[in-house]
Amino acid sequence: MSTHKQLQVSAIENGTVIDHIPADSLFKVITILSLDTIPHQITFGTNLDSRKLGKKAIIKVSQKFFEDDEINKIALVAPDVKLNIIRDYEVVEKREVRIPDVVVGIVKCFNPKCITNNEHIVTRFKVEDKRELALKCHYCEKITTKDELIMV
């Protein structure tokens, strides 16, 4: 019974498995991908042991295949993510995510005096440094860094 139950959680027939999410970024990833509003079956596990990350999380989304633009957004909070594309219970493709050149509408500008924090405006950043994550605001031109990263 318990093995059967475990199988139900871990295997999906068709869809995407997002692995190697830092455990503390799980809910950010859910928000960025709007997984709270999609109609498909989703399972996730968190605080799983990972040699690389310490504690990792994993998300399995049935019937969902992400476009590059869509999935690359999560690279901001989970740069080492591994995507497994599943068809008929088989991994048919493995992918990684890349930090995009331009980040639109995901991150808040850290600058409280920025117009985007004072009026309803979709934020827009140019990624100046992908390793250290330095995002230059299209509006106020200030740099938001990794430590100051807050999701919209």
């Binding site: 920025c114 985007t116 004072n118 509006y139």
Partner: peptide, 10 residues
């Protein structure tokens, strides 16, 4: 002229 940064670009 506006006190908020980025207001002119917007």
């Amino acid at each position: 002229r506006h006190p908020l940064e980025g207001s002119a670009r917007y």
